[in-house]
Design a protein around this nucleic acid. Structure first.
Lengths: 65, 65
DNA sequence: TTTTAATGTCATATATAATCGACATTTCTT
DNA sequence: AAGAAATGTCGATTATATATGACATTAAAA
C-alpha cells in the first residue's frame, strides 16, 4: 500500500474517480498504486495536485529522506 | 533554462556525464532540460539523487508552491 | 445471503519515452 | 582565429507508458 493509495483514500476517492480527476484510465491508477510501473512526471504532478499534496510526499520520502 | 540544467551546472556536470550517471542517453537529458517531453518518475528520481536534491526542487516548486 | 460497487488483472492496441547515429551550431580553450 | 568540447536537433528505431474492453475477485450494502 503505497502513498498514492493512502492519499486517495484520505480524499475519499475511488480509483475510478481519481482516474477521472487526473484524466487517465482506472487501470493506470491501479498499476501506479501497486508499483507495477513507472508513471510519467506529468501524471505524477496531476496526482499531487488533485490529492492536495506534492511530489515528495507521494513519491520521494518513502525511498529517500 | 529549467531546474535540471541549473542543478547539473552547479554540480559541474556535462549533459553527457549526467546521462551516464543516471543511465540514459545524452539526448534524453537534453530533451528533459528543454521541456521537450515528459520524463518517467524513475528517471526523475535518479536525476534528483545524482544531483543531490529532491523531486520538489527539480520539478514541483516552479509550477506550484 | 444476494446484490452491487470497487478492485486486481489479463490481452491487445496505441502513444510516446528513450535509444542510436549523425551533423550543425554554439561555447570553451588555446 | 583555430580547434575542441558541449549542446541542440533531426530521422529512424525500440521499449514501455497508457488506453480499452473484459472478466474474476474482494469489499460493501441491501
Amino acid at each position: 500500500m503505497n502513498r498514492v493509495k493512502n492519499y486517495r483514500k484520505s480524499a475519499g476517492l475511488t480509483q475510478f474517480e481519481l482516474a477521472q480527476a487526473v484524466g487517465v484510465a482506472r487501470q493506470t491508477i491501479n498499476l501506479v498504486e501497486n508499483d507495477k510501473y513507472n508513471p510519467s512526471l506529468d501524471l505524477c504532478i496531476r496526482l499531487a495536485q488533485v490529492l492536495h499534496t506534492d511530489l515528495n510526499q507521494l513519491f520521494w520520502e518513502k525511498i529517500n529522506g
